[in-house]
Design a protein around this nucleic acid. Structure first.
Length: 438
RNA sequence: GGAGAGGUGUCUGAGCGGUUGAAAGAGCUCGCCUCGAAAGCGAGUGUUGGGGAAACCCAACCGUGGGUUCAAAUCCCACCCUCUCCGCCA
């Protein structure tokens, strides 16, 4: 959410943002509601000031009359109080009526602000689609095969480590059952990621709830706009988390942090759940796009002035994972049209996939600046200074299921086996997954 | 799920219809004192919104949301959360 005062004073910047992001945003209602609201606030607050003064005076009169007992003076004071009460009744009714109107305007203003996306940072390229994203760098090289590399679902089913039929029985489409060394590979990856980030990169491991409430989702910007993309638990205020970015942001919701202790770096392994509404027919084969997947998320609470340096460091932390695994990847700077709702600047890390001969998104690292912090009420304060909103950063480090795909495809052998990268072997206990492992 | 207790400022904790944004204590900041420190003394110490060039003024906020009243931290209703006991349970 953007700051109300900022929006009011920078309508031109908001318009530019909408153009750059390729969305339509009607600002006319905003101008009207905002002006009306301020006018009414001025009026009602004057009335309230009167009410406070007069109520106080009535209190003194009533108290005085009681102290005077049954004397004539007491009667005079009582009469005066009653007269004032009569007048105040009218004013009080006016206040109530105006408060109702103001609350309605407040609500409409808030709803509007909740649907306005973040303003892209100046360093973000303006573009019309994903085609305008800018490649920043790439690492490694595509592996060479003397046979036609197969897609991961063929490798997985061939080796007996993925079972989609069983998943359909259990839950339905867009789910997968991992078996044997396939399940162990998933677990090995998650452990490797967590160990690397906690032991070498200084992140604190968090294991949060996988179910989150409406307030948490609103804080990161998932709600109210993206309700259709999530699973909601009927009859409750709980949703299945779409990303642990939600939980990690809410770790400090409505708190003021000590600025000297920032940046605070946390990471979490969680399952993530997405309804994938609107993705019908897209990536239906394999495990690329599932209703449930695992992700190790990196997250930082930073002071405003350090957030862009921290974003670069965050991306580096993610790259190390792919380098250790020996996977060819590239770093893309997303253009204005391809960025997420809450983000001011996003790098995607894309891993090479031999079966398609193309790169696949495996991590997304964003600086949301104060956008989420403002919605979530997360501030920081220097000892003597004023409190200000922190900046929040998030990045996948990495998406476990998609890394599983990358391992299977890049390290597949002609006989259908999968070679396990050196760094994963301690976690796997084997150096390869055989062609028919079950 | 059943029964009870409770949610007040950075913290402890008072107030339970009328000079209460909120006693008292602690903490913190600044100043005085001191060679320095402690103690002591003095002042300050929340957030949000509205107005203002500013100083500053006004309004709202005592778990959340409603209600009663001229007036609510204080009374009423609903919900949320914490604690204790019972039941159930991985």
């Amino acid at each position: 959410m953007l700051d109300l005062g900022y929006v009011r004073e920078h309508l031109d910047a908001i318009e530019k943002m909408a153009r750059d992001r390729g969305i339509t945003l009607d600002l006319a209602p905003f101008r009207e509601i905002d002006a009306k609201r301020r006018e009414l606030i001025r009026m009602v607050e004057a009335l309230k000031a009167t009410r406070n003064k007069e109520s106080h005076a009535i209190g003194i009169l009533v108290g005085g009359a009681e102290a005077l007992g049954d004397s004539p003076d007491s009667k005079v004071q009582k009469a005066l109080a009653i007269e004032k009460i009569q007048i105040m009744k009218g004013i009080s009714d006016d206040i109530k009526a105006q408060d109702v109107t103001i609350n309605d305007l407040d609500e409409r203003l808030k709803q509007f602000l909740l649907t306005v996306p973040n303003i892209p940072h100046a360093s973000v390229p303006v573009g019309k689609s994903a085609a305008d994203n800018v490649e920043v760098r790439r690492w490694g090289a595509p592996p060479k095969f003397d046979f036609k590399p197969r897609p991961h679902w063929e490798i997985g089913e061939g080796a007996g480590i993925l079972d989609f039929q069983a998943a359909v029985k259990i839950a339905g489409a867009r789910f997968a059952v991992y078996k044997g060394l396939g399940a162990r590979l998933e677990r090995a990856l998650a452990n490797f990621f967590l160990d690397l980030h906690t032991r070498e990169h200084g992140y604190t491991e968090i294991l949060p709830p996988f179910l989150v409430n409406t307030a948490s989702l609103t804080g990161v910007g998932q709600l109210p706009k993206f309700a259709a993309d999530m699973f909601h638990i009927e009859g409750t205020d709980l949703w299945l988390t779409p990303t642990s970015e939600v939980e990690l942001t809410s770790l400090h919701r409505d708190e003021t942090l000590d600025a000297d202790k920032l940046p605070e770096k946390v990471c979490a392994w969680t399952a993530c759940f997405r309804s994938e509404a609107g993705a019908a027919g897209k990536d239906t084969r394999g495990i690329k796009r599932q209703h449930q997947f695992q992700k190790v998320e990196l997250f930082k609470f930073t002071r405003p002035e350090q957030s862009y340096d921290e974003l670069e460091l965050l991306v580096k932390n993610v790259e190390v994972v792919l380098q250790r695994l020996g996977l060819h990847y590239r770093v893309m700077l997303l253009c204005t049209a391809d960025m997420g709702f809450a983000s001011a600047k996003t790098y995607d890390i894309e891993v090479w996939l031999p079966s398609s001969g193309d790169f696949m998104e495996i991590s997304s690292c964003s600086n949301t600046e104060a956008f989420q912090a403002r919605r979530s009420g997360i501030r920081c304060k220097q000892k003597a200074g004023k409190s200000e909103f922190v900046h929040t950063l998030n990045g996948s480090g990495l998406a476990v299921g998609r890394t599983w795909i990358a391992i299977a495809e890049n390290f597949q052998q002609a006989d259908g086996s999968i070679l396990i990268p050196e760094v994963l072997r301690p976690y796997m206990g084997v150096d390869r997954i055989p062609p028919a492992s079950t």
